[in-house]
Amino acid sequence: MFKLADSKATRLLRFPAHSIAGLAGTSFKHEHLGAILAERPAYGFFEVHAENYMGAGGPPHRALESVRCDHPVSLHGVCMSIGGPQRIDAAHLGRFAALVERYEPALVSEHLAWSTHQTTYFNDLLPLPYTEATLARVAEHIDEVQEAIRRPILLENPSTYVMFRDSTMKETDFIRELARRSGCGLLLDINNVFVSATNHGFSAIDYLSDFPLDRVGEIHLAGHAEQTDDQDEPLLIDSHDGPVADAVWTLFDIVLGRCGPIPTLVEWDSKIPDWSVLKAEAMAAQAILNLHAQTAAFGSTYATR
């Protein structure tokens, strides 16, 4: 298991250490930069995909640096292939670690998925069989990443469209044991839960009741696309191209009622709307976070009387 060493205490930080506790945020899109920088006071946090910033410099870095001065940032990897059968790509991991060092993100995360085969990189996040062999391999990969960046990561639960006959444990049990062995935290993507539950016919509420919420350091919300499969059954796609669905907002409220406010990000990665639309989604998440923060504070005050 990775042991956390606080390297920040021994070096000078490049950016302000903005608090992310209880905040809602959004995906950072460069077309929104002007509107974001014009807002005062600064609001919320922003998530970026690490692979979009692995060049040495240029406009992407200048934009991210300007945002990072006033906001906490969540660094979200999408191509580490932590669940893959081969070793973590050392060059990719080195670039990822350099970004963590450069931008001092408040949160660092990756996916419980694989996306590579030998030298081929797939433009997708593919599912895993939940077996002891897979568990051991993924835990080893997480340890390697955490040692390289000198901090724990948050691992995101997947959205899935197939299930494996070889699986010997539930997804929630697999994730729970993975966090215990590796010391990583978890990123709970509630839209992914709803998508998978609909596609496979299980209860999203039951899944969340069994999820290790005590290890969750960030929540994701997103939109999904509705389709049907070859048997005319509902098929949801984790598309990130529209507003958060009402059912996902309901699940979000239920989760916060159980674990309290947790930094929450609204993902929107295609069919990008105007900043006002994306900000409104984040503000809706913030309103629910604030409500649960007030409820927790009232309960604590009442309990001391």
Rank of each mutant, 00 (worst) to 15 (best):
F2H: 04
A5D: 08
K8M: 13
T10F: 15
R14S: 14
P16L: 06
G22S: 10
A24N: 08
S27Q: 05
K29P: 06
L33C: 12
L33M: 11
G34C: 10
P41A: 11
A42I: 02
F46A: 12
E47R: 08
V48F: 03
A50F: 08
E51R: 07
Y53V: 02
G57R: 01
P59K: 07
A63E: 14
E65Y: 01
E65Q: 10
V67Q: 05
V67N: 04
L75M: 09
V78S: 03
M80N: 03
G84N: 07
G84V: 00
Q86Y: 08
R87E: 15
R87I: 08
A91N: 11
H92N: 02
F96D: 06
A98N: 06
L99E: 08
V100Y: 05
E101C: 02
E101W: 00
E101A: 13
E104G: 01
P105C: 07
E110H: 01
H111W: 01
A113D: 05
A113T: 03
S115A: 12
H117G: 12
Y121T: 06
F122D: 08
N123G: 11
N123H: 11
L126S: 02
T131P: 10
T131I: 06
T131S: 11
T134Q: 15
V138S: 08
V138M: 06
A139P: 01
E140I: 04
H141R: 03
H141L: 12
I142S: 09
D143A: 13
V145H: 00
Q146W: 04
A148L: 04
I153F: 03
L155R: 01
L155H: 02
P158N: 04
Y161E: 11
V162E: 06
F164M: 11
M169T: 14
M169V: 14
K170D: 15
E171F: 11
D173L: 10
E177P: 00
C184S: 08
C184R: 00
G185I: 00
G185S: 05
L188K: 01
N191Q: 04
N191R: 00
F194S: 13
V195L: 03
V195T: 06
N199T: 00
H200V: 09
A204E: 09
I205S: 07
D206P: 01
V216C: 13
E218L: 11
E218F: 00
I219K: 03
L221R: 07
G223C: 09
H224D: 07
E226Q: 12
Q227M: 14
P234L: 11
D238P: 04
S239L: 08
H240T: 03
V244A: 11
D246C: 12
D246W: 01
I254Y: 14
R258K: 14
P263K: 05
P263L: 04
L265E: 10
V266G: 10
W268G: 15
S270V: 13
W275P: 00
W275F: 15
W275N: 05
V277E: 15
K279Q: 14
E281A: 15
M283A: 15
N290M: 10
Q294P: 03
Q294E: 15
A297I: 00
G299V: 04
S300C: 10
A303G: 04
